[in-house]
Structures are given as C-alpha cells and as structure tokens.
Design a protein around this nucleic acid. Structure first.
Length: 441
DNA sequence: TCTGGGGTCCTAGGACCC
DNA sequence: TCTGGGGTCCTAGGACCC
C-alpha cells in the first residue's frame, strides 16, 4: 500500500453536454441530453440541468424525453469536438507527470509520485487546484473534478465526492473512514448484480462488506472477484497507473431502428461492419485470428458466436465470410434488433513469422523467398483507405496491408496458403505501386 | 416510445495432448 | 470392466466500466 496520496483521478464534468453548451451559448443553463436521438437511443451524458429532472447516463432517450421539460435539447454526439477538448486536458496532465493513464475520453489517472513534485498534502492540493483552474482556459470553459488519494480506487471515489469542479484529497490513513459509510456500489467492480447478491446477505455499505470473510466472498463470487472485493473493501489497492495498454479486441455493432429479418440486409450490414473492423485493425498494423458475431433478438436476448481461424487475417473478405458463416447458424426469422462483428486474438507483424512457422515450415520458407512474389502492389486512387487494397486470384488469395504512422505493412495470405512474411515499407516507398495480382498456381 | 456502442476480465465445460 | 491428472485452447456467457 502506498503511504502518500500520490494518485490523482481527473474526471471532466458532464463532458459531452458541457461541450455542447460551450459551443452553443443558447444551451447554457438549459437541460441538455447528448446521446442516441432515435427511438432506441440512450443518453450518454445529461447536463446538470437535465439531471434535476432525473435524466441520467445510460437511460433510454425516450424516458429522458418524458422526464425533461419542453425546450430540453436532445443532441447526437460530436465525437470530434470531444476529442479535441480531451486532448487539451490530457496535455495538461502530461505536463504534470509522465505517468498518465487515460481511461476514457473524459477520465484519467495520474501518478504524482512519478512527477517529482512535493507530495505533502498542502503542496499536492495546491498543485492540483492549479490544474483544475487551468482547465477552463485550455478548453474554452469546461470544468473537471479531481480526487487525490493513496490508490486508484480512492482517488476515483474522491473525484466524485464534490462534483462539479471539486477537489477532494484523502489524507493517508483516512481511507477506511471515507470508504466505510459508502454503498458497496462505490467500489469499482461492484455492479448491479454483485450489489443485489450482497444485499441478500444484509450487506449494503462498505462497512457491512468488511464484516464478510474472504472465504465466504470467494465461495459466492468466485476466486478473482471474491478476493478482489475483499481487498478493495479494506482499501487494499496497489494497482499501478498504466501508461499503455494494447487493445485485445476490436468490434463494431449496430442496433437497428426496426428489427431486421431480411438476410440480404443482414449480410450487407455484416460486410459494412467487417470493413470498419478491418480498417481499425489496419491502423494498428494488426491481424486477428478470432471472429465473433453478436446478435440481439427482438426480445433482447443476446448471444455470440465465434470462430478461430487457422491463421490471423487482416482481410475484410475473410472476416466477412467467417461472420456470415456464423450468422448462417442463427435463427433470424423473428428479426434481429442488433448485429455486431468483432475480432480478437491479435498478432502484430513483429511476432507473425514465428507464429506461423509451425505447421508448414517449407511452405513458409518458400513464401519467404518466393521469386514470384512481386513488389507489393498497393494502390489507392482515393488515398490509403483502410482495408481497401486486397486482391484475389481464383483461389481467394490476396495481398493484405496494414498501415501504421507513415508505414505500410504488407503480407500475402489466403485460404489454404500459409501467410508469407510481413514486410514494412515507408508510406512513400516507390515499391508501393499498382501492379497485377500475383498468380499463385 | 425500454434497454447504445466500445471495450475488459472471468468462469466453466469440452476437446485435446502428454 | 477401469476410468490419472495437468495444461492449453476454444467457445459461450456474464458482469462490469465509461
């Protein structure tokens, strides 16, 4: 356990709604809900004025419309605007410390111990207050709230105690005093299901939870979760502020305005989503082995189907066809409310040659030196549209590329053919020119 | 006019291998 | 005519978070 209050949690106040009010002065002081505006939409963020009427995040927009008075603005999100403000704030945090963990567009942890600043309570309080004071200037008037404590859990709890524009510092040694009276839901990782289950044991507050033994919690909630909430209830939390995490899955999904029965429409959606997902894979120069579809039936029952391919792919057509095969096994006759496609099991090009070497080594070797392998043939009349340049011969083989910052990665793959080596080129390399697709026979 | 979209982590059972 | 045990991979579902 840390002995100083060295973790900062920062949270922008009613972020999406505040950006809208900033950019459209007529909305200032008025109730605003940002989120899905269709009849199946939900609220992402409600302004404080809208919260007065009971509007909340994750509430169906239809319900928020019933609760809020005439004149309430219901707006679709403008993610570009939010990103710009977010970056401005994250920039301020990086000025404070090199160790910043951005949790979402409006939230981050900062390790102040890595900042080399005076960690006495007064000094930290003054420094973070100055940070909060700088945020309106950097964002055109947005505000944030902050918490400082000896752990991530308590810093986050603290940042929520005096919103908006508040700062709460939990002095070391006082963690349990802050934690005890709170409802168990205040602990990160305790959601509706766990809270309901705990209530059946008469546990409502964290102090109640502290009276439960670890073996009991483990037998009720399993090893990981049980142990986790036992420790967190005692403010035992030494999780580090992590600067970088690799993505483990990428997905795209869509809830339809009306349930969809037509297989042709579903197939078209699958193709669109596969392309979106592949584009994002390519941005990270990644390939994926597992394809997952998600379907939600008209009655909201939700299920997933997944398939793991023999080799990683970055090709939209392979992902689409796999997703389609999975969807073919699903009864859609009553209509689907939602359809989604995701990929996981990532391989980066750096690891790739090793991963594929196993089953057919001669093949791989052959591919690696194949004299028939022409210069990579990436062409794009419309710029480097992600996933755009895959070509097929009669066996379905093709070139696949991924794009990083100023780099293009290229690899051959195809059904029944082991992937070739991955090559990386500068984006302006003259080798990346139009050419005919290779003939693999 | 109930219930978004993008993620993470965990569990559990079966297959498969040694 | 008895049914090891451990490890890993895959699939599906559930809980949770923002």
């Amino acid at each position: 356990m840390r002995t100083t209050a060295s973790i900062l949690h920062l949270d922008l106040d009613a972020f999406f709604a505040a950006v809208e009010q900033r950019d459209k002065p007529s909305l200032k002081g008025k109730p605003v809900c940002v989120g899905g505006t269709g009849h199946r939409g939900v609220v992402s963020t409600a302004s404080y004025e809208a919260r007065v009427y009971g509007a909340r995040s994750a509430m169906p927009t239809a319900q928020a419309r019933r609760l809020c008075p005439a004149g309430t603005a219901f707006l679709s999100p403008r993610f570009g605007a939010y990103s710009r403000s977010s970056e401005a704030v994250m920039g301020l945090l990086h000025e404070l410390s090199p160790v910043v963990q951005q949790v979402s567009v409006d939230e981050a942890y900062v390790d102040l111990a890595a900042a080399g600043i005076d960690l006495t309570l007064d000094a930290v309080t003054a420094r973070v207050r100055r940070l909060l004071d700088d945020i309106p200037g950097a964002t055109g008037g947005l505000t944030a709230s902050a918490g400082v404590a000896s752990s991530k859990m308590l810093a986050k709890i603290a940042s929520d105690l005096d919103k908006p524009a508040g700062l709460v510092v939990v002095p070391p040694g006082q963690e349990l005093d802050v934690l005890g009276p709170l409802p168990v839901r205040a602990i990160g990782g305790i959601g509706p299901a766990t809270a309901t289950r705990l209530r059946t044991f008469g546990v409502e507050s964290v102090a109640d939870l502290q009276r439960m033994g670890e073996p009991d919690l483990v037998s009720i909630f399993g090893d990981s979760h049980g142990r986790g909430i036992y420790r967190l209830a005692r403010a035992q939390d030494d999780r580090a502020v992590e600067t970088e995490r690799e993505a483990k899955s990428v997905s795209a999904e869509e809830t339809f305005e009306v349930d969809v029965t037509d297989p042709r429409v579903l197939a078209a959606e699958l193709a669109t989503m596969s392309t979106r997902v592949t584009g994002r894979l390519a941005e990270g120069s990644a390939f994926a082995r597992t394809v997952t579809i998600k379907v939600r039936q008209h009655d909201f029952t939700t299920s997933t189907r997944s398939a793991t391919l023999p080799h990683p792919t970055g090709e939209p057509e392979v992902i689409r066809a796999t997703a389609q095969r999975l969807l073919d096994g699903v009864d859609v006759s009553d209509g689907l409310r939602l359809l989604g496609v995701g990929v996981s099991g990532f391989t980066t090009h750096a690891q790739e040659q090793f991963l594929f070497g196993d089953d057919e080594p001669e093949h791989v070797a052959e591919a690696a030196v194949a004299p028939s392998m022409p210069a990579p043939l990436l062409r794009s009349s419309q710029g480097w549209a992600p996933g755009a340049d895959v070509r097929h011969d009669e066996h379905g083989a093709g070139w696949v590329w991924g794009r990083g910052l100023g780099r293009v990665t290229v690899r051959f793959e195809g059904p029944g053919t082991p992937p070739g080596p991955v090559r990386t080129f500068a984006a302006d390399d003259p080798a990346l020119h139009p050419a005919d697709p290779p003939n693999w026979t």
